[in-house]
């Protein structure tokens, strides 16, 4: 056949693999051990992630069906009587909507102010570290603080007040408002970074045309950083969808949506309900409910939702690559 060393079209080029092995022989043992450990840890993480996905998929797909998605949950000890997960799905979407509607303008406004104005400087620093503290705070701490706030008589309108003056403090308004703090840091951070990476000459081009600072922000800077805002928002939505502590403390823990007053629409916002996370929590084997299959199904739906949001982030990232500014 072919003589050693010849490289016909079918033969493996005597290149990379052997060169790599040859190089490895020159490495010091400690380096080799380090590289091996890094590989091992990496593979282990992949295995963990894959197992999680496969297990949730296996458990979830067994129980997910259309009927489950469109029927309302019912209290009951028997698995076959506990209904579907329509209300938690609606509740999750409602919470995402309320929280994002509050967090988005606040976060973008704060980022614009910090980067484009930033005066007085001490105040800008205070705002930045404040947002960092919120980003680092455990959501259960934020939740209990939020409950204390929304139980004040001042916020009686947000849930419902008993005759004696006590305020329930748990509602979609309460949970959504507090939940906005969960999304705010990621929207703020991505927007701020994007604004900071817009080169100075782009702003100057606009000022040089006799444009005001506000026109520059509205017509040049915001359109430029819009993909980054979208990325931060999608990430924030994922965090909202996945948070449990705030829901458990602030949404009232009723499985079904229950209006807090008779005003149509607003009543629902003032009322209580559940989200996919609180549904999983309540129906898990350790929770007070007794429908672990439904919990798996809901967890699976929740994971799909969050994976969907992450795909959206990736999509936005890819789309912007073609229309990027020279940095």
């Amino acid at each position: 056949m072919s003589s050693p060393g010849s490289t016909g079209p079918g033969a493996t080029p005597p290149g990379r693999r052997q060169r790599l092995l040859g190089e490895l022989r020159l490495w010091r043992p400690l380096d080799l051990a380090g590289v091996a450990a890094a590989w091992l840890v990496g593979l282990l993480l992949v295995v963990v992630a894959a197992t999680l996905l496969l297990y949730m998929g296996y458990q979830g797909l067994q129980y997910v069906n259309l009927d489950l998605l469109v029927s309302r949950p019912q209290p009951g000890a028997d698995q076959s009587q506990t209904g579907g997960i329509l209300d938690p799905i609606v509740g999750t979407l409602l919470i995402i909507l309320i929280a994002t509607a509050i967090a988005l303008p606040l976060a973008v406004g704060a980022a614009l102010w910090i980067v484009e104005y930033g005066r007085p400087r001490w105040l800008a620093r205070v705002v930045e570290s404040g947002i960092e503290v919120i980003a680092g705070a455990p959501s259960i701490a934020i939740a209990i603080f939020g409950l204390a706030i929304f139980q004040l008589p001042l916020f009686g309108w947000a849930s419902f007040a008993a005759d004696g003056g006590g305020v329930f403090g748990r509602s979609f308004i309460a949970a959504g408002s507090v939940m906005s703090l969960i999304a705010l840091p990621s929207i703020f951070a991505t927007t701020r970074e994007a604004l900071q990476s817009v080169p100075r000459h782009v702003r100057e081009a606009s000022y040089g045309l006799g444009k005001t600072r506000w026109a520059t922000i509205r017509r040049v800077l915001l359109p430029t950083v819009r993909p980054d805002i979208a990325t931060g928002t999608a990430l924030g939505m994922g965090r909202i969808a996945g948070d449990t502590a705030i829901i458990v403390l602030l949404l009232g823990a009723t499985l079904q949506l229950q209006a807090g007053s008779d005003i149509p629409g607003v009543g629902t916002l003032q009322g209580t309900g559940s989200t996919l996370t609180s549904y999983v929590y309540n129906n898990s084997p350790t929770g007070e409910g007794n429908a672990p299959e439904k919990a798996y199904a809901a967890a699976f739906v929740l994971m799909l939702l969050i994976i969907g949001l992450n795909l959206l982030v990736a999509f936005i990232g890819r789309r912007r690559a073609g229309n990027d500014l020279p940095r």
């Binding site: 080169p199 000459h201 782009v202 100057e204 081009a205 606009s206 040089g208 045309l209 006799g210 017509r219 040049v220 359109p223 430029t224 229309n323 990027d324 500014l325 020279p326």
Partner: peptide, 13 residues
């Protein structure tokens, strides 16, 4: 008094 910069800097539009 309009200005042209060193780096071509069209807006991303």
């Amino acid at each position: 008094v309009s200005m042209i910069f060193q780096q071509p800097n069209p807006f991303p539009m």
